[in-house]
Amino acid sequence: MAVPGGAYMMGATKEELGDSTNDKIKYLDETPRHPERVRSFALAKFKVTKREFSVFTKETGFVGKGCRIYDGKAWRYDPDADWMHPGFEQTEQDPVVCVSWDDAQKFIRWLNAKIPESSHHKYRLPTEVEWEYAARAGTATPTYWGDEPAETCRHENTRDLSKNALDQPAQAGGCSDRYAFTSPVGSFSTNPWGFSDMLGDALEWIQDCPKIGYRIGPSYAPDSSTTCRTRGLRGASWASIPIAVRAANRTARGPTERNSTVGFRMASDLSR
């Protein structure tokens, strides 16, 4: 879907985070809050699904074994887990998970090879600035539905009461979204711009190389080189605790790492 160009305030406010050591670290990573301008671009309404990814694997012979999963007692690396077997049952319409940043790039290159060279609509991952702009969808609150955690289950699939049986010590929202793991894309209401699951279901790879905090200045520009030691992740997942379910939340992992909480969504430039 086309996203109109515009401006917004990127980053977190002190008020949306708590006083724990972890919250203070997140605050340093998500500030300073600063203005950003975004050119119009296109972003997928949904994350890439398991069914869509299967077409790529059948045509290319892709095999991506090894993924960090939750085994019912703890998080661990399973060398046999993959996008088909992420440690829980999925439908074909659930978001594909257990895919690395490198895996997402292979999928995108495969898809772009089917598009005429003259087309402006080549697929890619969104930049961090684009992603947060679309996730906020014109709002300035921690989430697009406001700052009421009790409303989360109406809008997103995150860690809630349905997941208490999985990991009792972890924090959970005080509601139930009916899904212990991933849910079919589009199962919840969309944000004001019509995008689904921006703050839940699965974290999303972005194009940029992350840095701790935002380096703001005349020469500031996100690093999207091909030699990053880590790649950025935005949004939240079925396993995310309440403090992570915010438009400003950011994290990162190595480009070859696979996790059963991580998928991706595609973006595209619009014709100039």
Rank of each mutant, 00 (worst) to 15 (best):
P4F: 02
M10K: 11
T13S: 07
E16W: 08
I25L: 13
L28Q: 14
D29I: 05
D29W: 14
E30S: 09
T31M: 08
T31G: 05
H34R: 15
P35C: 10
V38I: 13
V38M: 04
V38R: 05
R39I: 01
S40K: 14
A42N: 04
A44G: 14
F46D: 09
V48G: 02
K50V: 04
T57Y: 01
K58W: 02
G61I: 15
G64P: 04
G64V: 04
K65S: 08
G66W: 06
R68L: 01
D71W: 13
W75C: 00
M84W: 11
P86Q: 10
F88G: 04
E89Q: 12
E89C: 00
Q90N: 05
T91K: 08
P95E: 05
V96F: 01
S100E: 06
W101K: 04
W101L: 03
D103F: 07
A104L: 09
Q105I: 05
L125R: 05
L125I: 06
T127L: 10
T127R: 15
D147C: 08
E151K: 15
K163C: 14
Q168V: 06
A170C: 01
S176A: 08
P192D: 12
P192S: 12
W193N: 03
G194T: 04
F195R: 13
F195P: 07
E204L: 10
W205C: 08
Q207N: 03
Q207A: 06
C209T: 02
G213M: 13
I216A: 08
S224K: 08
R229S: 11
R229A: 13
T230L: 12
R231D: 09
G232R: 07
R234K: 13
A236N: 10
S237A: 15
S237P: 06
R246F: 11
A247K: 11
A247I: 12
T251D: 14
G254R: 15
T261R: 15
G263W: 10
A267S: 11
S271M: 12
S271R: 13
